[in-house]
Design a protein around this nucleic acid. Sequence first.
DNA 1: AGAGATTTGTCCGTATGTATT
DNA 2: GAATACATACGGACAAATCTC
Lengths: 136, 136
Amino acid sequence: MTVDPGSDRAMFRQLADLLRDQITTGKLRPGALIPSEPRLVQQHGIGRDTVRRAMAVLRGEGLVTTEQGTGTWVRQTPSRTVTIRIQGDDWVEVRLPSDIERRKLGLDEGIPVFEVHRANGELEIHPADRARIVTG
Amino acid sequence: MTVDPGSDRAMFRQLADLLRDQITTGKLRPGALIPSEPRLVQQHGIGRDTVRRAMAVLRGEGLVTTEQGTGTWVRQTPSRTVTIRIQGDDWVEVRLPSDIERRKLGLDEGIPVFEVHRANGELEIHPADRARIVTG
DNA sequence: AGAGATTTGTCCGTATGTATT
DNA sequence: GAATACATACGGACAAATCTC
């Protein structure tokens, strides 16, 4: 299966769809290496820019992580180590960190953060891929 | 102020930083029009690719929204119309929607979704820029 | 309705730099 | 050092959407 230049859907989206499907169906398991950019270029007969844009889509969805000089992998969904308990007048919002904040927190692209506003005025930030909100 | 080719920081990140700063400080208010791509190209003496990547950064952070044929605007943070109440064994996780799901939900890029798992097994999806989690 | 200008979307090519193996 | 892989940046070309006249 490959991408279709004649389709209405942009080729980089088709390629992202194709890889996302392999990830969500388990064909590409967490930790698996995505074929290199030149490899995908050759496999689908497309430009490198197109491949890179597809990767950018998947990174933005938190599905893959890329390391310069090495390659791109299916992200390991970390076991949720943090359980956030809220009660009373606590409340929670969610947002994506800025590029700067993301680096400071050591987060991958496409990972939102929980902003936990405690009733006492304190503010906690938690990466949203390692946390789950419960009551009590 | 403009970008510096000699800096360690990539130029498209510098441009994103610059615009993000104007947005967060209120210099560019919600609804304000971002200068067009050719305008920014000329203003900073950079390539269009660089400008577009800066925009992609800001879109991914949920700060701006882009419409083909029109332009790019500072996002209106919608009034929070949804309040999610959780209690008992309800729990909440957060993720970014896939490209396909995002279109189906009519969401901008960079907007996470709440996944509310009810104790009775039901599953609710809420755009995370229009929701707030509380107890009770 | 139509034409033209403006603006963003997609795709390709090339070149160079940086990081890892 | 060499080979491989991703990062950044430029340029050009055409398509698609929107707006104005």
